[in-house]
């Protein structure tokens, strides 16, 4: 195939994707006049005991209302770079500004963490990318990373609630299944989950969750799953089907869940557009009266 043909093919593909993903950010995802802005700071973490040798950037969002007098709730994002991006699919800091200001969600600190890399020592060699290993593995390792590595780091500077109902995890794709895995492994520490186009497929065994959920005593997890009809169908599995299976299993097992199947593909447009709604639903009764 000639180069030109390939380019036009790629253009066509992107047009097709654009038509399918006609989702837009609403007013709650955009800056509003009179709403105080929290502070977002960037950091680097290189001291992991759970993923030795890994390095990563992370960002901390602290709402302007935070004064340290009472512990804040917490929301953790996988692929933090995308979620904190002021031009990204979700613009989570702005959404948090807006919903904390109106009191629709509690005072919440945001922790936006990138996946780790293990840099090579050899000159010119590539780093070992840890994203799939960290996010797709069905173990408690990533939960331990949050609890033993990251949260203690955060607690040096901020007061964070230990109430698992006050802690949420959010991610997209492999970061989505990772959010579920964190709560599934440690419901004593995290009980709120948001997944955009979650990879409940066989990247590293994630397709087994629906079966496991059906045959495990219900755990106290509240989860919002977003998926898209035009999402991936590849060697690892079929993303819309994987998410449908998850929703069916959650329903069967009696979970407090919401499932939204959109028209989109494997991206964060739809999830980003409904992110404020997801937060409102997750926090609808917090703190419990």
């Amino acid at each position: 195939m000639k180069f030109r043909n390939l380019l036009s093919l790629l253009c066509l593909l992107s047009v097709a994707c654009a038509l399918a993903d006609d989702y837009h950010l609403g007013p709650d995802s955009l800056r509003k006049e009179g709403v105080p802005q929290g502070k977002l700071t960037m950091h680097k973490f290189t001291e992991s005991k759970v993923y030795p040798g890994s390095e990563r950037d992370y960002w901390v969002y602290v709402p302007s209302q935070y004064d340290g007098t009472k512990p804040a709730c917490l929301i953790v994002f996988q692929d933090g770079k995308w979620y904190q991006d002021p031009h990204g699919h979700t613009r989570a800091p702005t959404v948090l500004d807006n919903l904390i200001h109106t009191g629709e969600i509690p005072l919440t600190i945001g922790l936006f963490i990138n996946p780790g890399v293990i840099p090579a020592v050899k000159e010119g060699a590539k780093p070992r990318k840890n994203r799939s290993f960290e996010y797709d593995t069905l173990s408690d390792q990533y939960a331990r990373f949050l609890l033993d590595d990251m949260i203690p780091q955060l607690k040096r500077d901020y007061s964070i609630t230990d109430d698992p109902e006050g802690r949420a995890v959010c991610g997209i794709s492999s970061g989505g299944i990772c959010a579920w895995t964190v709560a599934w492994q440690r419901p004593d520490a995290f009980r709120k989950v948001i997944s955009y186009v979650g990879s409940f497929t066989n990247i590293r065994g994630g397709h087994n969750y629906p079966a496991i959920i059906r045959k495990t005593e219900k755990k106290p997890i509240r989860v919002f799953l977003q998926a898209g009809e035009k999402d991936l169908d590849n060697l690892h599995g079929n993303w819309p089907l994987g998410n449908r299976q998850m929703a069916a299993a959650l329903k069967f097992a009696g979970y407090d869940f919401r499932f939204v199947m959109g028209e989109g593909g494997h991206n964060g447009k739809h999830g980003g557009a409904i992110f404020p709604e997801m937060l409102r639903w997750l926090w609808r009764d917090y703190p419990q009266k």
Partner: peptide, 19 residues
Amino acid sequence: WFFRIEKDGSLSFRSPYAS
């Protein structure tokens, strides 16, 4: 198992990267 190769040839940061 994956290992990083250090300058002196020793190995570090072992992980069960693939199954």
